[in-house]
Amino acid sequence: MRRLGARTGSKIVDQIFVAVLLGAAIVFLAIILGLAASLVKGSLPSLRTFGFAFLWTSSWNPVTSIFGALPLIYGTVISSLIATVLAGVFGIFAAVFLSDFAPAFLARPLSFMIELLAAVPSVVFGLWGLFVLAPAMRNTIDPALQRTLGFLPIFSGPSYGVGLLTAGVILALMIIPTVTAISRDVLTTIPADQREASMSLGATKWETMMKVVVPAARAGIFGAIILALGRALGETIATTMVIGNRPEIAVSLFAPSYTLASVIANEFTEATSDIYLSALIELGLLLLIVSVVVNALARILMWSVFRGARSAR
């Protein structure tokens, strides 16, 4: 009897536990839905006035109160993509170096520094971007790209230093710590026997990392990249300082551009007319949607890569 009683008790504890978890999940859901709902509500005047044209028109004119978000969506997505690709490549290499190649006396301070980098406020990145990176892009990097890859339209045209590519690079620098730190943690959780198995078959350390350890950690690394992508999409201050803030779609990555988050930050405090405010709130809604869509696309992409890797012969 006593035994039975004890088990009933633990069952109740279990149920309470489940209820708490469920409650937490519902609260999260409610917050997100509430957020979306209030954004939709705030966007209503703009939605009514511009309809779907808001998505594919390119004028952003507070004076005439005609608003279209296409260049802003474009700038947001492209700058984040550039950042994600750069940060993915560099972050993974840095993580591989830190987890398996760097001697301990180097790995520890380096990891510490990288984590410190994640704590640097974005305005500092922005200032550095404006005063150091932008001139370097204009004087050195952009001309070099133009010389070597200038036949690609994305590397053509005049460079102002500030622009889409510069914003992508700054964002990459900002999210590399996230990618690196998480990827390194994931890599170190891959058991030593995987490494030993590969090495014992005559693989070099490099082959072991690239063909066994990194693939084994890919889900975690991918999670890190998704997390970083989220930060890049929503980053405001640093982006606005180096992207040029021009709501225009240009083929060239050197050209100035603009992002959803930057426009909101730049114009929200001074917007007084209803339609203007509403258009800005709709940008917020779009940012939410763009984040969800980009995330979903990235997941689908990765999922297909996973499957591909599994069935590869």
């Binding site: 026997d193 014992s200 005559g202 693939p215 599994r310």
Partner: peptide, 25 residues
Amino acid sequence: RHKIGMVFQRPNPFPKSIFDNVAYG
């Protein structure tokens, strides 16, 4: 290690396909 193969105390296959495990070396 190319000349000296090793089978470990605890099985440690790679999280890959059976084929890819054998084809790895």
